[in-house]
């Protein structure tokens, strides 16, 4: 038999124990459960909060105390170009992923179980297989004598090879490829939640297909589009591997700049400040998203 305070719970059924004692025991048991979160909390403290705090400290303390690093980042033309690149690429990637993701989510929403699952499985696989490997594949595919260029040439569409890599085109193709799932999944769940009766009602009221799409279907999809677009935009702001591999010297993005400053130039203060700007933008975007749609609330049942 067990010993210790746990055993006493079995006494609860017939137990004529005083109320206060029982409540105290319960509190103790549940208090003990709460302590189970401590290891995870310590991990988050030492490998998340502390590094981030350290970075913030370094950004305002090195090489000397003050906001000099931030001023340098925002004033220097070279760094401003990097910021501009980052926002441009993130915006283009967001628009392209939404334009491609929308019909794909729609197709999955209307296809039968088998084909829907097949497409979803494919998207899921591409989401969970190596980012590095897939970026590498695109690097080879998009080369000037690569498969894509030779195929286009063979079809007679182009006479000279297109420069598809080591520039912004390459970065956009690679990042669209990698971020596509993040717009398809939220869109799909929004579309699946749309009441089909709503569309039928619109049709019964005399709306044609185009009016139905524009005035009923599309507005109903807006939350999904917004969630997916925001997600893709924020994620692309911080991307490192794909832009480095598929981009060129003129398409440097914020993440690459941070790594360059810290690892090659050892300018920790400046690098930390750049990292903090990225962090702040990301947090702001997620705060916006939390305001619009609370993922935790929606995860706990309800839509």
């Amino acid at each position: 038999m067990q010993t210790g305070p746990d055993k006493t719970r079995s006494v609860q059924l017939p137990g004529p124990a005083p109320r206060g004692w029982r409540a105290a025991l319960r509190a103790r048991l549940e208090g003990a459960t709460a302590t189970l979160a401590i290891p995870a909390l310590l991990l988050v403290l030492f490998f998340f909060l502390l590094p981030v705090a350290l970075l913030l400290a370094r950004s305002i303390l090195e090489p000397e105390a003050g906001l000099g690093n931030y001023a340098e980042l925002l004033q220097s033309g070279a760094y401003r170009t990097v910021l501009l690149n980052t926002f441009t690429i993130a915006s283009v990637v967001t628009v392209v992923t939404v334009l491609i993701g929308f019909p794909v989510a729609w197709l999955i929403a209307v296809s039968n179980r088998f084909w829907g699952m097949a497409l979803l499985g494919l998207i899921f696989i591409s989401m969970w297989t190596s980012l590095l490997t897939r970026s590498f594949a695109w690097l080879i595919l998009l080369q000037s004598n690569g498969v894509i260029n030779r195929m286009l040439k063979g079809l007679g569409l182009i006479s000279e090879p297109l420069s598809l890599v080591n520039n912004m085109t390459g970065v956009v193709i690679g990042m669209t490829y990698i971020l596509l799932p993040f717009v398809i999944f939220p869109l799909l769940s929004t579309m699946r939640a749309i009441e089909p009766g709503l569309l039928r009602a619109a049709a019964l009221c005399g709306a044609n297909r185009w009016q139905c799409f524009l005035h009923v279907f599309l507005p109903a999809c807006v939350p999904g589009i917004a969630a997916g677009a925001l997600m893709v935009f924020v994620m692309s702001l911080g991307y490192f591997i794909t832009p480095v591999m598929l981009g060129g010297s003129s398409t440097m993005m914020l993440a690459e700049l941070i790594v360059h400053l810290v690892q090659s130039l050892l300018r920790w203060g400046l690098g930390a400040a750049a990292a903090f700007i990225l962090f702040a933008i990301t947090l702001a975007a997620y705060a916006l998203q939390l305001r619009l749609f609370d993922p935790l609330r929606s995860a706990k049942g309800g839509r």
């Binding site: 979160a37 030492f46 970075l55 911080g238 993440a255």
Partner: peptide, 25 residues
């Protein structure tokens, strides 16, 4: 709720920021 948010935070942060922070530490 706050604990949950805190534990999900590392997923939200751009990994490059976390990488540089952890490197520094």
């Amino acid at each position: 709720w706050w604990l949950h948010m805190l534990l999900l935070m590392p997923m939200v942060l751009p990994v490059v920021v976390l990488a540089v922070g952890i490197y520094s530490l």
